[in-house]
Nucleic acid binder design. Structure first.
Length: 445
RNA sequence: CGGGGCAUAGCGCAGUCUGGUAGCGCAUCUGGUUUGGGACCAGAGGGUCGCAAGUUCGAAUCUUGCUGCCCCGACCA
């Protein structure tokens, strides 16, 4: 007897909207509202409903695994920070109105963190004294708040957003560049596992400062920014799971950075024009990550120093590395959807399979579904069982909308021949199989 | 922050100009008929018309103030 209840749609919380709420302009926002992933609570601030929360968790976990693989170490810093820390770096006055400033009951000045360079630098300087403890890369996955003047496009540009931010500490610039490369390669792997094509592009360092930086841009026709790239970038191989992060990563990074790829702001029309015409690609994209090297910008004013092998104190060289976790949910949808709804890449889908019972209450279909659910679950497959008493059309429309990679359709007609239908959401292909064959196909998939 | 717009049932909308018992579609509930691509019939429930003040015998409708939200631009992970 299994010790868990099946995830039955009739008992789940999946508020599907048939009509598109009028505020949603772009496709990912529309689909996230319609498929019951999120609910807006205030401008740029969203609740994550069960299906959305599952996707967010999947993305978070892939990001975490690849950060860990690259040698970064997870911590968790608070959302609320003291203004004092930000005065040390000078950013309390520089950051502007995007920073949400609040006062506690003792009238202490606080802020809801838009980023964590100061805080992580404070942690570092409190404990680390020697170059022997380097390199160090600390990251966390935490909610941030930036009081955007004009939040829009749903979670694509919300005010509150979930972000992975990593911070590297090294003795000198050369070591910091190696740390940068580790994150660069980790990002290539992360986005690949998330099922999106993300291209690193030369970027403007912006207010965070620094002189080496790349933005990772997901190509999507509905993307917000225009990008220009060498088509060869699309064919550049993504490093495998066996990549040695302690080894020399410069060849991998060089293979990517050698190919022309730039956003509009950094576009060099002459360099782009020098490419053979059939390799020039003008596309649109969404920024989902950025890596920076910024040297001693924070460590120097904040006194984050270590003693080097020379016996002298050195301000550490730092970098920071962000991935927009909540934004990625929207970016993935922008890059992967059709007229009927979302098409989740397998790695981030909220469930692996939607098991559709076409005749709820019929002893044969009910029993077949129960058996299939159990066999698939025991094989580690995450199944959403649609046991709702609805017409077939409505069930199919719901499954297509929420975009699970596979639909396993069980109806009385097929079952009379011992058969079920397996539909691949991405392609729409359907296959009629015996129950055993369908289970084996899914377990093998 | 400049410009524009919207706010009426859970969602999408009409009604506002020209003040007079608050409507439609979808969704929800009940009963029946249906049942492989968003069914049909009959019935039912659900609204302090964003908030406040004013004008008026009477305000969803007119006036003033406020709030929230959206779109374009500038800005931005």
């Amino acid at each position: 007897m299994r010790s868990f209840l099946p995830m039955r749609l009739s008992r789940y919380f999946l508020p599907i909207l048939r009509e598109t709420p009028k505020e949603a302009e772009i496709v990912s926002h529309r689909l996230m509202l319609r498929a019951g992933l999120i609910r807006q609570q205030s401008a740029g601030i969203y609740s994550w409903l069960p299906l959305g929360k599952k996707v967010l968790g999947k993305i978070e976990q892939i990001v975490r695994e690849e950060q860990n693989r690259a040698g970064a170490i997870e911590i968790l810093m608070p959302t609320l920070q003291s203004a004092e820390l930000w005065r040390e770096s000078g950013r309390y006055d520089d950051y502007g109105k995007e920073m949400l400033r609040i006062e506690d009951r003792q009238e202490r000045e606080m802020l809801y963190g838009p980023t964590n360079e100061e805080m992580v630098t404070d942690i570092f300087r409190s404990y680390v004294r020697s170059y022997k403890e380097l390199p160090l890369n600390l990251y966390h996955i935490q909610w941030k708040f930036r009081d955007e003047l004009r939040p829009r496009f749903g979670v694509m540009r919300g005010r509150e957003f979930l972000m992975k931010d990593a911070y590297s500490f090294d003795l000198d610039e050369a070591a910091a560049r190696r740390a940068y490369n580790r994150m660069f390669v980790a990002y290539l792997r992360t986005f690949d596992r998330l099922g999106v094509k993300a291209i690193p592009m030369r970027a403007d360092s912006g207010p965070i400062g620094g002189d080496a930086t790349h933005e990772f841009i997901v190509l999507a026709s509905t993307g917000e920014s225009a990008v220009f790239l060498d088509k060869a970038a699309l064919e550049t191989p993504v490093p495998g799971a066996d990549t040695d992060f302690d080894g020399d990563l410069t060849p991998i990074v060089a293979a990517w950075t050698a190919k022309y790829a730039a956003t509009e702001e950094m576009h060099d029309a002459a360099a782009f024009g020098a490419l053979p015409e059939d390799r020039r690609l003008e596309a649109r994209g969404i920024e989902v990550g950025q890596v920076f090297y910024f040297g001693t910008k924070y460590s120097a004013p904040m006194g984050a120093k270590v003693t080097g092998p020379d016996g002298q104190e050195h301000a550490v060289h730092m970098g920071s590395y962000g991935i927009g976790v909540s934004r990625l949910v929207a970016a993935i949808i922008e890059a992967s959807h059709d007229e009927a709804g979302i098409v989740w890449p397998e790695g981030v889908a909220p469930f692996d399979v939607g098991l559709v019972n076409l005749k709820v209450g019929d002893a044969a279909t009910d029993a077949a579904c129960a058996g299939l659910y159990e066999r698939l679950s025991n094989a580690g497959i995450d199944v959403l069982y649609d046991d709702v008493d609805q017409r077939a059309g409505a069930k199919f429309a719901t499954m297509d909308l929420i975009g699970l990679p596979w639909q396993l359709i069980v109806g009385p007609k097929g079952l009379a021949n011992g058969e079920v239908e397996l539909k691949r959401r991405a392609t729409g292909e359907r296959e009629t199989l015996t129950l055993d064959a369908a289970v084996n196909r899914l377990i093998g998939a």
